[in-house]
């Protein structure tokens, strides 16, 4: 079966696109899927750092596109997961080094060898974003439960609809259940109410995500992390499994939970 090509994008920067790509890739590959991630953020590459593969880079995506190496030479195999590969971005070039048709050609060569191709889109809605969504079969839009991130997600969804890429599926990243409970943060329902798209995952705020990113060991490896679990669930949903959403509101004790249940009519 040819690969599913999934682009992860957001409009706004810093909402956790690259973290999401790394974690979903790790989760998919841990379950035995053949995965290749492509860092589309040319000039500002990060995915290699989060995956802990920075020091293995010899060739990058621009080298492939400009014919300085073969595709296979630019693919870095993960140290822990033999079925996970990374094609890194170039750090010394910019987005204009690649065109949407370059991306389509590159992905075409990967489709038959993998189950999933994950593309990490840069922030913004310009060239790099256009490159990243051009080959996508499916687009995941990452947002945070804050007004500016949601507004940018809305804009991106509008563009995806106009480009006939479908409205995309939504990942709400860094939700803090305590803040939501105190009405200090948008809830998942508030976000969905505005964006009106399919939800594919809610990832709770979790300091292990940052620690994992800094160590080059994505949190999806950590069986105890709630955020890791959320990313593993997203991976399962991408494979077509039905997985219930995490009950993030587990801050209370047994009695509070019971009260909540009783209060739910």
């Amino acid at each position: 079966m040819p690969a599913q090509v999934i682009t992860i994008t957001s409009g706004k920067g810093g909402v956790g696109k690259t973290t999401a790509v790394a974690n979903i890739a790790v989760a998919l590959a841990s379950e035995g899927a053949k995965v290749v991630c492509i860092d589309g953020d040319i000039g500002l590459r990060n995915l290699d750092v989060i995956l802990g593969l920075e020091n293995l880079i010899v060739y990058d995506i621009v080298d492939v596109i400009e014919g300085r190496c073969r595709l296979r030479q630019a693919m870095i195999r993960d140290k822990k997961l033999p079925e996970l590969y990374l094609i890194p971005a170039a750090q010394t070039r910019d987005k204009n080094a690649v065109s949407p048709s370059d991306m389509n050609r590159l992905i075409k060569d990967l489709r038959n060898d993998f189950d999933f191709v994950l593309i990490d889109s840069p922030a913004g809605i310009e060239r790099g974003f256009k490159n990243a969504i051009a080959p996508a079969d499916r687009v995941l839009v990452v947002t945070n439960p804050e007004v500016s991130a949601v507004r940018d997600a809305d804009r991106v969804i509008g563009i995806l609809e106009a480009e006939e890429k479908g409205p995309g599926s939504l990942i709400i990243n860094r939700l803090n259940p305590t803040l939501v409970k105190n009405h200090d943060m948008l809830s998942a329902d508030d976000v969905l109410d505005l964006l009106a798209v399919e939800l594919i995952g809610i990832v709770p705020e979790d300091e292990h995500v940052i620690i994992g990113s800094n160590r080059g060991a994505p949190v999806a490896f950590d069986p105890k992390s709630r955020a890791g679990q959320a990313f593993r669930n997203i991976a399962k949903r991408l494979r077509g499994e039905k997985v219930p959403f995490l009950d993030l509101d587990d801050t209370g004790g047994f009695w509070q939970r019971l009260q909540r249940l009783a209060g739910r009519k």
Partner: peptide
């Protein structure tokens, strides 16, 4: 217009 106008429209 029978559609939702998203940000940027």
């Amino acid at each position: 217009l029978h559609r939702t106008l998203r940000s940027g429209t």
